[in-house]
């Protein structure tokens, strides 16, 4: 069986000088005796939207969590923007990254969760500002106390302004002082997207962002994601929304039982699915 990378040249890196945003080579992962990922090969180009679909338990969420090292990979190579995830290669040897180095890597990758995971003790605005303020803020310098103080204050103002802009962009400018418990599911998920964007990530991961929402609230979240895709954000979306995948996705990946069974341009694979398990899956989902 040929690898999906070879199957779909449309999103394989042609230009060797510019590595793909995400490159997975034979990525494997097991939880105890359960093999969750059985060798994933995938390349995601910068500026594209890749949708991953598949039945539950197929390993799609696990793969997504491997990309920002919430889960560690057992075997294979996984890199983001040309750098290895979770490890460092030096003199032909792999070294584990320290907590601090992993944090630095994660700061550039946004993630949106199925259950939103907003911080309930912070307002919407505080949810958006907390990470940039604490992670990105320039440190205080004792050698240049006044200059660094001003730089820090300016940074704080800038983060606040940007956070307000982000909330406006997701249509929640009037909810900035609300607590998550006062927002609907769709509003919470939009705040969660704004929170991830506040770190100015180069890659956004969406883990079933609409699965926990009431049907009438799904649209508002998909609209925000659609706008994000139009702005050229690199996105990997684990989803059950076939319409979104068809309309917005540049690539569609079907996973089952820890493997990628089919991938390609969404319109093509959805129109003519070749793998029988993908056909069976589609017949259940699209009815």
């Amino acid at each position: 069986m040929s690898t999906p990378v070879a199957q779909s040249p449309s999103f394989v890196s042609e230009d060797a000088s510019r590595p793909p945003m995400v490159l997975a080579q034979d990525v494997r992962k097991r939880f105890g005796r359960l093999q969750v990922l059985r060798g994933i090969n995938l390349a995601v180009e910068a500026g594209t939207v890749t949708c991953i679909v598949g039945p539950s338990g197929s390993g799609k969420s696990t793969f997504l969590r491997c990309i920002n090292h919430l889960e560690r990979v057992d075997a294979g190579r996984l890199s983001v923007d040309g750098t290895l995830v979770g490890y460092r290669m030096r003199r032909g040897k792999l070294y584990e990254l320290t907590d601090r180095q992993i944090c630095k890597m994660r700061a550039d990758i946004g993630m949106v969760f199925q259950r939103f995971n907003l911080f309930p003790h912070l307002t919407a605005l505080e949810n958006v500002t907390v990470a940039p303020l604490r992670v990105r803020r320039p440190p205080f310098s004792f050698r240049h106390p006044i200059r660094s103080h001003h730089a820090r204050r300016a940074f704080k103002e800038e983060v606040r302004r940007e956070a307000a802009d982000l909330l406006e962009r997701v249509g929640l400018a009037d909810k900035s002082s609300s607590y998550p418990s006062q927002l609907s599911g769709g509003q919470q998920q939009r705040v969660a997207i704004a929170r991830a964007l506040a770190m100015k990530p180069k890659l956004m991961l969406f883990d079933e962002p609409t699965s926990a929402l009431d049907p009438e609230l799904v649209g508002e979240v998909l609209d925000v994601m659609r706008g994000l895709a139009a702005d050229g954000m690199t996105m990997i979306v684990v989803t059950h929304e076939m319409g979104f995948a068809r309309e917005v996705g540049d690539a569609l990946v079907f996973m089952d039982d820890g493997e990628i069974l089919e991938s390609g341009a969404p319109r093509d694979v959805l129109a003519a699915p070749s793998n029988p398990r993908f056909q069976a899956f589609l017949s259940k989902v699209l009815t």
């Binding site: 920002n68 944090c103 994660r106 969760f113 995971n117 309930p120 969660a192 929170r195």
Partner: peptide, 25 residues
């Protein structure tokens, strides 16, 4: 657990996660 993962995915180190996210809750 999702709270810790959200903080981690934003690049917060362990101590900051405990101080800003876990302890207040």
């Amino acid at each position: 657990r999702g709270q810790i993962e959200a903080a981690q995915s934003l690049g917060m180190p362990h101590t900051l996660t405990q101080r800003l996210v876990v302890l207040p809750q």
